[in-house]
């Protein structure tokens, strides 16, 4: 769980960095997308890196979801009779909503891949596949639609929550929080990552919607 989660964290950081290139304009962004596909050449074939990454991500996703399901089932079986009254006094909301957040993210990722990678659906023009435009146009067209932006922003809230607890949790699971101070640092790291990543991702759709980024 922690390893796959950590892999995701690495990915979203990189991905966020890539997305922020959108502020550099159409060329920069597309170049970046293209560059990704050339990465590692000639050692790797064209799109080699991206496929390795995809396989890795898919594996991590499977591990992550399987672990999540197993944990959820174990938790369910460990308490089949619920409390009539139960208070929470030592936990964050994010820690208790990991499963909902995770499910939201899963739905989001499916749609997101349809949207940008495999289906390439341009909700504005209704075109799909190569016709949907280059990555930059697709991006801008997508977020010019207000409800698309909302979907993405909701997902980013889920991501923020997930990361807030997930970061601390992964560090704890990896056994790196053996003192009160390291525990505090891990919690801070959770906050920072949540704000930076969710904030960083949200910057692009918001900017498009507000017209800061345009074609």
């Amino acid at each position: 769980m922690a390893a796959s989660g950590a892999a995701f964290i690495g990915f979203v950081l990189g991905h966020m960095y890539g997305n922020l290139k959108a502020f550099g304009g159409q060329e920069k962004f597309n170049e970046y997308a293209h560059h990704l596909r050339e990465l590692g050449e000639p050692l790797l074939p064209y799109e080699g890196f991206i496929w390795i990454m995809r396989v890795g991500l898919l594996a991590a996703l499977i591990v992550h979801v399987v672990c999540a399901v197993v944990l959820a089932r174990r938790a369910g079986q460990a308490r089949t009779v619920k409390y009539a009254v139960k208070k929470n006094k030592g936990s964050s909301l994010s820690s208790r909503t990991m499963r909902w957040g995770g499910a939201t993210l899963l739905l989001f990722i499916i749609w997101h891949l349809v949207n940008f990678t495999f289906g390439k659906v341009n909700v504005q023009t209704g075109e799909t596949g190569a016709a949907a435009g280059d990555p930059y146009s697709l991006l801008v067209d997508t977020f010019d639609v207000w409800w698309m932006t909302i979907i993405y922003l909701v997902a980013m809230v889920a991501l923020a929550f997930h990361l807030h607890h997930g970061t601390w949790s992964a560090l704890q699971t990896l056994g790196l929080t053996n003192t009160a101070s390291s525990r505090q640092r891990a919690k801070t790291a959770g906050w920072v990552l949540a704000v930076v990543v969710a904030g960083g991702f949200s910057a692009v759709p918001l900017s498009v919607l507000l017209g800061i980024i345009e074609k």
């Binding site: 197993v70 944990l71 174990r74 938790a75 079986q77 460990a78 308490r79 929470n88 006094k89 030592g90 936990s91 964050s92 820690s95 208790r96 990991m98 607890h165 601390w168 949790s169 704890q172 699971t173 929080t177 053996n178 003192t179 009160a180 390291s182 525990r183």
Partner: peptide, 20 residues
């Protein structure tokens, strides 16, 4: 159940066993 580091346990513990 498995631990997902929620932390309710430590705040309920009468002997204040820390999460570490």
């Amino acid at each position: 159940g498995g631990c997902t580091n929620i932390g309710e346990c430590a705040s309920a513990c009468p002997k204040e066993i820390p999460l570490d």
